[in-house]
């Protein structure tokens, strides 16, 4: 029997759908033509231009500040939430579980609008602070669920064994919990980082003047033309995001063996 060609065609179709736009964008970012379209020769000039644009630098700085602070805060809170959800099976924790789960399914646009209304009602000035707060809000849930997944195969008797052998909580946390759960927590942190860097919708609502992050800035650049620079920026942006995802995948696959 001839081997079926269906798997091959399916794979090709999926690849085309997923990656053709990216390939086109990447090729265009090296195209010397001013408005894209037909190929006019290879150039790095859009990349060079990119590095001269002060507003892009400031958006990049904002993105990193937001992503790093959001990652730090949501990793700590999210991991603690996961621990509590895992350890205690009370009615309060069932509620806690639902509340933590909600941001994963609520549409971004609802989150964005409700956060904006919240800030406006409390008369909080929109700025980097509000963006960070908004990102923490949804990242906590993602971190919590990644860590919770890893806790499913965490054996609590490790903690009891450590107690039994005379370890205090400091030693238990740093010599047992963090080494064993570290890879899971790191994977959660990486996810939080990429989600924060990528987010457009929520940030669009809650960013004040001067606190645009890269996605929001790219959007406003499209409105003002100059797609070639945007191609270059998007390629760089994508490369960094992709790298972070690959690294986080690496950590979440390298589970500690029990």
């Amino acid at each position: 029997m001839k081997p079926s060609r269906v798997p091959l065609y399916t794979t090709l179709a999926v690849l085309a759908f997923l990656y053709l736009p990216i390939v086109v964008m990447t090729v265009q970012s090296f195209n010397a033509a001013r408005y894209g379209g037909e190929w006019k020769g290879f150039t790095f000039s859009w990349y060079a231009k990119l590095f001269e644009d002060r507003s892009i630098w400031s958006a990049t700085r904002n993105t990193l500040v937001v992503a790093i602070s959001c990652t730090a805060v949501s990793t700590i809170i999210g991991s603690l939430a996961a621990w509590v959800l895992h350890r205690y099976r009370t009615r309060l924790q069932r509620l806690h579980y639902l509340v933590t789960y909600a941001p994963l399914v609520v549409p971004d646009i609802l989150m964005g609008i409700s956060l904006l209304l919240f800030y406006v009602n409390l008369k909080i000035l929109l700025g980097l602070g509000t963006v960070i707060l908004a990102h923490v809000t949804f990242c906590i849930s993602y971190v919590a669920f990644v860590v919770l997944g890893r806790l499913q195969d965490f054996d609590y008797s490790l903690v009891e064994a450590a107690q039994d052998l005379g370890a205090g909580w400091g030693r238990i946390v740093f010599r047992v919990l963090l080494p064993v759960l570290g890879p899971g927590i790191l994977a959660g942190a990486m996810l939080a980082f990429t989600l924060s860097v990528d987010d457009f919708v929520i940030t669009f609502f809650v960013a004040g003047p001067g606190s645009s992050t890269l996605p929001v800035h790219i959007y406003s650049m499209i409105k003002h033309g100059s797609t070639t620079v945007i191609n270059a920026l998007s390629v760089l942006f994508m490369t960094v995001t992709f790298a972070v995802v690959v690294i986080s995948q690496f950590f979440s696959r390298n589970r500690p063996v029990h």
Binding site: S157, A161, A162, V176, V257
Partner: peptide
């Protein structure tokens, strides 16, 4: 412990 609980 029944499942040994060795630190992995």
């Amino acid at each position: 412990f029944q499942n040994y609980a060795l630190f992995p």
